[in-house]
Simulated assay, not measured.
Amino acid sequence: MTRSTRPSTRSPRPAGRTRAAFAAMLVLTVLGSSACATRFALPDATETPTPLPDITAEPTVEAIDPRCTRQFPGTAVLLHEGELETRPELWPEVPSWAVLCATEWENDATQVAWYATDEGISRAEIYRYYEHEMAGYGEYGRAETADGEISTGVFPPQHSFYIEATRDQYRITWSIDGDYAD
């Protein structure tokens, strides 16, 4: 057997010291584990059972609002306002009597959001709510179209919009199409 002729950078340890250190670690490990076993013993069992979680309960799953399935059968999906990419940051919150049900893109800069309302909410109530909530933020007015009256306007800094409502539902169309800042 040939040995390497290159010098080693490690200094050799005496065999006796290595064995003594190993033996000391082994003794401490055995003593330490037996001390832990007696120091942290499990408590005695009691008559009172610990309640267990109910594993038979179904997990809570968010569902499509019934107003959506009633107004937009087959097209309603579970959506959140934060998913609307063209909605202006300061746009009014959705009223408590309405829920977002669907969205679509007309082009790269125009998104439409479809909302269902509680039964009996009129077109006038929908327009009044948004016009009141937009006071001080945007410019708006009413206009006649072939489909009836709409609420339309601009919402700074770069959005135009229109709201088209019928009984129990409405749609808001936002377009990013200009610079409307003062």
Rank of each mutant, 00 (worst) to 15 (best):
Y162R: 12
A165M: 11
E139L: 12
Q111C: 05
L78K: 09
R142C: 00
E81T: 14
G120Y: 04
P66Q: 03
S122R: 09
D177F: 05
Y140V: 04
H159C: 03
S122P: 03
D168E: 15
R13Y: 06
P12G: 11
A109M: 11
R13W: 08
W91R: 01
S96I: 06
P7M: 09
E93M: 06
E144K: 15
A41Q: 12
T38V: 14
A21Y: 03
V61K: 14
W114G: 00
T5D: 14
P66F: 01
R87T: 10
D108E: 13
Y129M: 11
E164D: 10
A165K: 10
T56S: 15
G82P: 02
A116N: 02
L26A: 15
Y137W: 10
E125T: 12
L26H: 00
P59L: 11
H80K: 11
P66V: 04
E47K: 10
E133M: 15
A102S: 12
A135H: 12
Y170N: 05
Y129T: 11
M25H: 01
R167I: 09
T5K: 13
A116E: 02
P14M: 07
R167P: 04
L28K: 00
I172A: 05
E58M: 12
S11I: 14
S122V: 05
T38G: 02
R19W: 05
S122L: 09
F161W: 05
E119A: 14
P7H: 08
L84S: 08
L26M: 14
W105R: 15
I176E: 15
R67E: 05
S8T: 14
G153E: 07
I64P: 02
T152C: 05
P14L: 07
E62H: 01
P53D: 03
R167W: 09
F161N: 03
D65G: 08
L26Y: 00
E83R: 09
P49I: 09
F22K: 13
S151D: 04
A45C: 00
Y115T: 02
C101W: 01
P156L: 09
G74I: 06
E131Y: 00
E106G: 00
L79F: 02
T18Q: 10
V61N: 02
Q71K: 05
P12A: 15
A124Q: 15
V94Y: 02
P88G: 08
A98N: 05
T9K: 13
H132R: 13
T69Q: 12
A76Q: 08
H80E: 12
H159W: 07
D179C: 06
L100N: 02
T60F: 13
P43S: 11
E133W: 03
T173L: 10
M134G: 04
Y140S: 14
E104I: 01
S175D: 08
